[in-house]
Design a protein around this nucleic acid. Structure first.
Length: 468
RNA sequence: GUCCCCAUCGUCUAGCGGUUAGGACACCGCCCUUUCACGGCGGUAACGGGGGUUCGAGUCCCCCUGGGGACGCCA
């Protein structure tokens, strides 16, 4: 049988790290087995679901390269089908109307808790012939089996057994007529032919109930894999306090999808000593049965390392293309600077994100107001005057404005002045970049261009002369 | 409170009864060097505790501790 997996987020927020990892595992499992991957939006809670969230989730999936073969399906559009099953169950005695009010249920739960019991519905309206109270609109509950236990094999946890006594009769249809989550999942997973349910382990306790409902539909349950949660660096549940929790926030901060994907896949899954995986390699190697059952913490520093790794590894032309929006967002004109592929090659080993790369490269695109104070004091003092004078003179005369020729000039001047390369290169660097950090000075000058470089050198010479 | 789950360096992890407990990130040192980086080399650092089983336990079992999850007319 061909594999069908799904990712089923509820549109009540953006796509966060945990959801993205679940989606990735689900996608990988489908791809690995040549199956299909379905996206299903679980928007039965109309109060909390928003179109904006749906869009954010779709954007996040697209950015991560997790394309779906079917969907997105929306549960809000499948009301007829749910109604049909509910009516059938009511008819067959597999479900019943419950007239318990919210207040009664609260009191019941409170009493149970006070007695040290697990709070659960007491089954009052199950097989009850009493006349329904007037003025109460009932909800519908599923008749969970009273005896026996549910046993299933989980691909990451192994065998899981839960006694039906632990389970109560869950609401499948609210008083307002809308179906609830656990019920919709069951109908959808069956209708859509899902073979492997891959989801966060916070759903593990829903699984026995869902299996019971699947049995009520007289179908075999799919296979399950409950993947561990991702915790923040402090070991607590991931939240806004841990910085960027939305996948698209990482995009905004200049991370590459390759990096986030790679970091995510290594959270809970490994393949020997290997750290770096291309998408194709993940697809070829990923195995649900190798997923680690314990929760993992998200380490932003490792993500940074992956990001720089891909910055160094990816094609410079491709990265140049991806750099465009970041330049624009930074208020820079991509046409006002050097060739972008060359820029990427020069800056990627000293940048960890695209945003950082842009900031490190600002001076190539626009003039700066002032020198970095510390750098200017150190490198643009009167002591730098002779070197700057020599540099300006020689560069004016230089015919071939290329890195090798520029390198020759710097080297020659250092030799003539009998000083180290740093005594010449650093003043030039501060003069043209405004600070003491930049790519190798010959490359920096070449990319900057003759006119810009000479103008900035002259300005720096004036500055140096004025220091005392 | 009740039920369930998890447990190797700070973090991600390898390990699947016999290992000097390996790798990666981070950190520290050295080298390279015109800056910052990159790179190279080296280093610090872990089996939560207690009982078993076994000739032998990080690996299997139990308890404790710690952490997490679930207990909605939320998903």
């Amino acid at each position: 049988m061909s594999v069908v997996t799904r990712f089923a987020p509820s549109p009540t927020g953006y796509l966060h790290i945990g959801g993205a990892r679940t989606a990735l595992f689900s996608w990988l499992h489908a791809r690995r087995h040549g199956g299909r991957f379905i996206l299903r939006v679980e928007d039965t809670d109309r109060e909390r679901s928003t179109d904006e969230s749906t869009r954010a989730i779709l954007d996040g999936m697209a950015w991560l390269g997790l394309d779906c073969d079917e969907g997105p399906y929306f549960q809000s559009e499948r009301g007829g089908r749910y109604r049909e099953v509910i009516d059938a169950w009511l008819q067959a005695g597999k479900a019943y109307y419950c007239y318990r009010t919210k207040e009664e249920l609260d009191a019941l739960r409170e009493a149970q808790r006070a007695r040290g019991e697990k709070p659960r519905y007491d089954g009052y309206w199950r097989d009850n012939d009493e006349t329904p109270p007037a003025g109460v609109t009932p909800c519908v509950r599923f008749k969970n089996p009273l005896e026996g236990e549910v046993v299933f094999h989980d691909h990451v946890r192994g065998e899981i057994r839960v006694s039906n006594r632990e389970l109560d009769d869950l609401v499948i249809c609210r008083a307002d007529g809308t179906p609830t989550y656990n019920f919709c999942v069951v109908v959808d997973d069956h209708d859509m032919g899902i073979t492997h349910v891959i989801r966060g382990d916070d759903h593990i306790s829903n699984t026995p109930r869902q299996i019971n409902m699947l049995r009520a539909m007289e179908v075999e349950p799919p296979e399950y894999a409950h993947v561990p949660m991702i915790l923040g660096h402090d070991g607590k549940r991931l939240s806004k306090r841990h910085g960027a929790v939305s996948v698209m926030q990482y995009e905004a901060e200049g991370y590459l999808p390759e990096a986030l994907r790679n970091h995510l896949v290594r959270l809970g899954w490994s393949h020997g000593d290997r750290e770096v995986f291309t998408l194709d390699e993940m697809v070829a190697l990923f195995d649900l049965d190798e997923v680690n059952p314990s929760a993992a913490s998200f380490d932003p520093r490792k993500l940074l390392w992956f990001n720089q790794h891909y910055l160094k590894a990816l094609d410079a032309g491709e990265l140049a293309r991806r750099l465009l929006p970041y330049l624009e967002r930074a208020g820079l004109d991509p046409g006002a600077g050097p060739d972008l592929a060359a820029l990427v090659r020069a800056q990627r080993e000293r940048s960890t994100t695209l945003v950082e790369l842009v900031e490190n490269s600002r001076f190539f695109f626009e003039d700066f107001e002032a020198y970095d104070e510390k750098s200017a004091r150190k490198h643009l003092s009167v002591a730098a005057v002779p070197a700057l004078e020599a540099v300006i003179e020689r560069l004016r005369a230089l015919q071939d404005w290329s890195a090798p020729a520029l390198h020759g000039v710097v080297e020659a001047i250092a030799g003539e002045l009998e000083v180290g390369m740093g005594k010449v290169a650093q003043p030039i660097r501060v003069a043209v970049a405004g600070r003491a950090v930049s790519p190798p000075i010959d490359q920096t000058l070449e990319m900057l261009g003759r006119d810009r470089a000479l103008a900035r050198l002259e300005r720096a010479l004036e500055h140096a002369r004025s220091q005392d």
